[in-house]
Design a protein around this nucleic acid. Structure first.
Lengths: 141, 141
DNA sequence: GTATCTGCAAAACATTTGCAATTCT
DNA sequence: AGAATTGCAAATGTTTTGCAGATAC
């Protein structure tokens, strides 16, 4: 496991979140796999280990994490809400063939904006869609 | 009306879309108001004028427009799919106070991307959230 | 013992699907 | 008439809500 359970427990406490078993497992899943999972993917991945787990708890927990700003929400596809424990400013790329979501590091400070004079920007989101390198290589074979 | 019905009829025909009454009204709504509406907003706006209108038709029509690439889909908020008849490359800004969605013109060519080597990018999307100038002015009063 | 957390079941929405009625040519 | 379009009703899928039981301090 990339981050020890103890560290996660401390981390959640520092953010005013009581570190219940379910919460620690869900947060651990997010930082371990970095796969930008949906609610259902998190639920399916953990239900074997936590047989009593309910989707309601996954929803409740993610909402709590969002409110406390330790995760961010990724909206790429309509009807598909994803979550990311990396809250640094970065974009995403979704491969339309395999469905994987990748991180994209970009410098948005150079981007000139027209039409936002006098607006207050709180959040900036960038995402791309296309075909990832893994899928492109498959085509060659 | 900004664009005559005749022009819309011709436009749809040019894109292999049979210009039914409903389709012309829906397309007209999109180009007239440029408000990036949801399905429900379109439906509510037109149902007075077309009392038999159903949401199914709005869904069908928007899907047809998307397939024929005369509109684009905007995904800003999870659970809220919006549509835009302006298919040029631009971003959007959603005001978290009044809910309005604005167009943002930006030059993305200057944006340096890290992590997308060998990827094929088909679509690029940029959006912002915050407070628009109209709402900021309200605060001063 | 009291607060909180969890999870079932039902409700609330948004979107899709099947199909019959309507419209257009 | 024949093909396409419309729209109702039901189904689907996701997220939210109410609440009762379990758990933690």
């Amino acid at each position: 496991m990339g981050v020890s359970e103890f560290k996660i427990e401390e981390f959640l406490k520092q953010h005013n979140i009581k570190p219940s078993y379910q919460r620690m497992k869900i947060y651990n899943y997010l930082i371990k796999y970095k796969s930008h999972p949906t609610v259902d993917e998190i639920y399916q991945a953990l239900v074997d280990e936590i047989p009593t787990l309910s989707k309601t708890t996954v929803y409740n927990t993610l909402k709590l994490f969002l409110d406390n700003k330790i995760i961010q929400l990724i909206t790429i596809e309509e009807n598909e809400t994803r979550y990311d424990a990396d809250i640094s400013i970065h974009g995403h790329f979704k491969c339309l063939e395999c469905g994987r979501v990748y991180d994209v590091w970009l410098d948005m400070t150079k981007m000139k904006l027209k039409g936002l004079d006098e607006f207050r920007i709180n959040e900036s989101h960038v995402y791309f869609k296309g075909t990832c390198s893994k899928c492109l290589i498959k085509h060659k074979n």
